[in-house]
Design a protein around this nucleic acid. Structure first.
Length: 428
RNA sequence: GGAGAGGUGGCCGAGUGGUUGAAGGCAACGGUUUGCUAAACCGUCAUACUGGGUAAACUGGUAUCGAGGGUUCGAAUCCCUCCCUCUCCGCCA
């Protein structure tokens, strides 16, 4: 969330950002509540100060063995006065905090202004994009291919859990595991991330910390009895590892990578692009998370994107990097690149599938999650900047892999870098 | 799940109703001393919110002893609820 003081002092900047991100502008109410809060706070603190003074004087009198009943009576009535004010204050604070949670992060100045995905800017492209017409045989899409090879089973996934819970079988399961291990190893050994295997469920405080709550409540799986949420992304447990901590400057940048399964209800988003792997309730993802110094966060964003790109380059899967415009930028992000892989047999979005999203949240999450650092022993703690990116989600990656690596015989060649993980070179 | 013990500042640890934001120690920071290091000595040593002040220095107030509520003129200290940690027992992958 944003600093209330910042909102108070720069309401127009914030309003502008809200408009660009197409969120609801409730800044007027926030400013009003903030004024009320400060007024009530002043009143309440004045009374408390009186009460403290009275209590001290009572103590003094008692020590001297004198009568203090007049003061005690006064203290009692002050206490009654305070109750009413305190109640009002708490209500105002609750309302204010709730509203403040719904104020989005400000887009960075380098983010193009735009309405939606049509205004995103392609910043670069890598690999050979071979369209369907470039192949001299009839391409199969990932679903058909997966079923024919017996490596994917959506029907049985529906039986045991429900639609959108895919099942991987045999070499498909092995390939999935290989991808995960390959990506983790690359990020750990080559890019210097620390591997984390976090819990797959988190509490409310964690969900608030990274900004999924309260806005995205509908999209989470929630275990009511224990009040726990299934993680929608490893970003949540991993970023929250350091919640309420003050890091030393030597710890920055802190870089984590983690595999988790990701669970999303995807409420209301069924319809187009929902065939097969394109939209599922459970998928696998290797996530990258960085906690960095504020002045370095934009350099780190570029490096983060580079770390993700290397995965695709090693797998030799064509992709493009999209800089999201203000209208497509998520609630918490200040700047975000999407990495889209190309899947030649997929009709949706002309074959370009979002496989990674790399964002700089600046201090937005750090403020919510209260993650700070000290430049040295004497300086005040400052909020870190947090970044994260999928490095990558395997579901969409699997689509691109199967479709790009298929042969005229309906087999799939395993990319070379995965051989040492799979133990086989062809799926047939 | 059952029984017990406990959660105090960066860390250790005292404190069972009244100048306790919290003794003492360690660590850290500044300084004195020192050929260097060590030691010794002196000092500083929480955070947030809020008011005054020049959005500085400085300064007033409030809150914070796991969290939330209650009792009281007054709570780290008494009562209730919850969370977490440890030990033992049970159950279990």
């Amino acid at each position: 969330m944003l600093d209330l003081k910042f909102i108070r002092e720069n309401p127009d900047l914030v309003r502008d950002a809200i408009r660009r991100k197409k969120e609801t502008d409730r800044i007027g109410e926030i400013l009003q509540l903030d004024g009320n809060r400060r007024e009530l706070l002043r009143k309440s603190e004045l009374i408390k100060s009186d009460r403290n003074r009275i209590a001290d004087e009572v103590a003094k009198l008692k020590r001297q063995g004198q009568d203090a009943s007049a003061l005690i009576a006064e203290g009692k009535s002050k206490g009654d006065d305070q109750k009413g004010i305190e109640e009002d204050l708490r209500k105002v604070e609750d309302d204010l905090n709730e509203l403040a949670m719904y104020v989005p992060n400000l887009p960075h100045s380098s983010v193009p202004v735009g309405n939606g995905s049509e205004d995103n800017v392609e910043t670069r492209r890598w690999g050979e994009v071979r369209k369907e017409s470039d192949f001299d045989f009839k391409l199969l899409d990932h679903l058909t291919l997966g079923e024919k090879l017996g490596i994917l089973d959506f029907a049985r996934g529906s039986k045991v859990a429900g639609a959108g819970f895919p099942v991987y079988l045999g070499k498909g399961a092995a390939l999935e595991r290989a991808l995960i291990n390959f990506m983790l190893d690359l990020h750990v050994t080559k890019h210097g991330y620390t591997e984390v295997f976090p819990p797959f469920v988190v509490n409310k405080a964690s969900m608030r910390g990274t900004g999924q709550l309260p806005k995205m409540a509908e999209d989470m799986y929630h275990c009511e009895i224990d009040d726990l949420y299934l993680v929608p992304t490893a970003e949540v447990p991993v970023t929250n590892l350091r919640r309420d901590e003050v890091l030393s400057v030597e710890e920055l940048p802190t870089k984590y990578t983690a595999y988790t399964a990701c669970f999303r209800r995807e409420a209301g988003s069924w319809g187009k692009e929902s065939r097969g792997f394109l939209r599922v309730h459970q998928f696998n993802k290797v996530e990258l998370v960085k906690l960095v110094k504020p002045e370095e966060s934009y350099d780190h964003l570029e490096k983060l994107v580079g770390d993700v790109e290397e995965v695709l380059q090693l797998l030799n899967i064509p992709y493009r990097v999209m800089l999201l415009c203000t209208g497509d930028l998520s609630f918490s992000a200040a700047k975000c690149y999407d990495i889209e892989v190309f899947a030649p047999a997929t009709e949706a979005r002309e074959g370009w599938l979002e496989a990674s999203s790399c964002s700089n949240f600046e201090s937005f999450q750090a403020r919510r999650a209260n993650i700070r650092f000290k430049r040295d022993a004497k300086s005040k703690p400052e909020f870190v900047h947090t970044l994260n990116g999928s490095g990558l989600a395997t579901s969409r990656l699997m689509v691109a892999l199967l479709e790009n690596y298929q042969t005229p015989e309906g087999k799939v060649i395993v990319p070379k870098v995965l051989h040492r993980y799979t133990g086989f070179t062809v799926i047939d």
